[in-house]
């Protein structure tokens, strides 16, 4: 179950740093999590069928013979208040999605470990994604949050909501105007609340 959640996100951005040298196409095996080896890896990340939460000073331990290099990436979620940035992170981290919306009062980071097998290689890499999430109000009111989020960031996830037209219209502006320290920073767009849209129609 956790594996399915994980593969629902685009995974090619692991190449952001060396994107120029690579040809487009898939770089990891998308159905690897269903294989025996994949299951063993994911079992190390689960506790009672839910994703285990790791503290800052913890990391997943894999059994002997199942070594895996950990590659760390910093991702910043950017988008209008209420589009569902925090809920998206909860979903990815295997946490319960908050039932009632409330504005995130500042900056919070979440860590997610995600093993994947590269195409044409036996190597299993464990991606460590550190997701930065700031409430829109806090981001505008205090000026120390934005620098904290974009410093050494590997990718920015621009979020819009399928049930909020304005959040989609703002997207072009946000992508163009967010001043990132490096031009090569990968930009990803994620739409949220699609099930709400489909259930309405």
């Amino acid at each position: 179950m956790a594996g399915k959640q994980l593969t629902s996100m685009p995974v090619n951005y692991c190449t952001s740093r060396s994107m120029m040298e690579l040809s487009p196409g898939k770089l990891i095996e998308h159905d690897w999590y269903e294989s025996n080896q994949g299951r063993e890896f994911f079992n190390c990340l689960l506790r009672k069928q839910k994703r285990r939460q790791f503290g800052v000073l913890e990391r997943p331990t894999f059994p002997l013979g199942m070594s895996s290099e950990i590659q760390s990436y910093k991702l910043f979620l950017y988008g209008k208040a209420g589009v569902g940035k925090t809920s998206l992170i909860c979903k990815l981290c295997g946490l319960d999605i908050p039932q009632i919306h409330h504005e995130t009062p500042g900056l919070q980071t979440s860590t997610i470990y995600w093993p994947a097998k590269l195409v044409n290689s036996n190597e299993v890499i464990t991606f460590k994604f550190i997701l930065y999430d700031v409430g829109e109000f806090a981001l505008k009111k205090y000026n120390h949050f934005l620098p904290a989020c974009i410093e050494k960031v590997d990718a920015v996830i621009f979020t819009f909501s399928f049930v909020d037209r304005a959040s989609f219209d703002d997207l072009t502006n946000s992508v163009d105007n967010l001043a990132l320290p490096e031009k090569s920073t990968l930009k990803i767009v994620v739409g949220t609340k699609y099930p709400i849209l489909t259930s309405r129609s």
């Binding site: 925090t86 909860c90 946490l95 900056l107 919070q108 980071t109 979440s110 860590t111 806090a138 949050f145």
Partner: peptide, 12 residues
């Protein structure tokens, strides 16, 4: 009361 996260930085 806040969402489970690795770290937080909030103004209070």
């Amino acid at each position: 009361a806040m969402v489970h996260s690795a770290s937080k930085d909030i103004a209070i």
